[in-house]
Nucleic acid binder design. Structure first.
Lengths: 191, 191
DNA sequence: GATCAACGAGACTACGGGTCTCGCAAATGA
DNA sequence: TCATTTGCGAGACCCGTAGTCTCGTTGATC
């Protein structure tokens, strides 16, 4: 038995997500309202709220879907080089329009526990898992010490990226990937 | 020549800052409105806006003034121990009501460039300077390598604290001070 | 062609940050 | 003592935006 009535307009859904991604990525954080998104997507506001619970949920979807394939992990037998390459990729991502969207979501996450959970589950954790797998692989290969707290190591490696994105005390350049690796690696490498 | 008219009520100013600190520190971020602060301080809203430009500015003042003397740096000749002790202090601060206030300010800073600058200048940078001075002292004492990027090292040490505060992927316990030091120190110590 | 749900358009509500007004209180100066 | 000036408390008010409701229309199924 099929569903009755008019079916969902997948084209409109895509237009909404595209508009959200483009608008939020191209303006200062906080400058994009739900009306802007609806207008840019040529969609009625109600159509948005039929499928998403809130403005923030739309932007989060746009972020997750729009960056699905970004920040892949190189996988060689040189774990240090893999991490350095990955750091460069994330730095480029943070300096792209996506960086603004991440900042906006992070702001919302501070005051909305549900969004915070969804942001972690759908955006943050998958990337974290990839990094963690690479760390474990490095330990297996004997390139990384096995007596460290994995979570702390990952926080130390990626912490500079996140703090510079959110605090903005210093710019984040691709060259920082090497600097971070240089600072961290001697502390976690085996011998 | 003295100023004419009624003088500023310093008592009321103090009540506003106290109320802001207490309220924002004791509720989920984003749950405290300017009306709540005015009511709790027994002050008219206009009185607040006579001396502060925005709700956010009040909370930032409350944060800066309320934590003026917190997070002091122990200064011994054992720089590693000094950093570990300081990390413990900051962790305690982040787990206290102050942590909520910091999160709230960080959220605002993402969408308000003026607040972002003020937050950095008045809250973030002074602590950063203290940490940096300790790092430089460690280099002088020959306990820390001299070929590292200071900013990156500081970001790596304190990054885990800030990311756990803002992302909330893992709790932050005093024991993490040692874990962070253990992970970072071998990479930055001389020899 | 009857029915059902999604759609675009746009009016509407709810709420909170910020402004305005008013009568009163406290400080100065004549 | 009294006029003037500025801060104060109280509360109405304005305004922008997230989210809801209504309506006439469109596209799908039976």
């Amino acid at each position: 038995m099929m569903a009755r009535g008019r079916t969902r307009d997948d084209e409109a859904e895509r237009r909404v997500l595209d508009a959200a991604f483009d608008l939020v990525g191209s303006r200062p954080p906080g400058d994009v309202g739900i009306n802007d998104i609806a207008e840019a997507a040529n969609v009625a506001k109600q159509t948005i709220y039929r499928w998403w619970p809130s403005r923030t949920a739309v932007i989060l979807d746009a972020l997750v879907i729009g960056t699905m394939k970004e920040t892949p992990f190189r996988e060689t037998d040189d774990i240090r080089a893999d991490f350095e390459a990955h750091l460069r990729t994330v730095i480029r991502l943070f300096n792209s329009p996506t960086g603004r969207i991440v900042r906006e979501m992070l702001a919302e996450a501070q005051t909305d526990e549900a969004i915070a959970n969804e942001f972690r589950d759908r955006f943050w954790q998958p990337r974290r898992d990839l990094s963690h797998a690479r760390l474990v692989r490095g330990i297996e290969l004997g390139q990384i010490r096995s007596d460290l707290d994995h979570e702390i190591v990952l926080d130390a490696i990626y912490g500079p990226l996140w703090t510079r994105l959110t605090i903005g005390h210093l710019p984040l350049s691709p060259a920082d990937a090497k600097r971070i690796t240089d600072a961290i690696w001697p502390g976690i490498s085996r011998d």
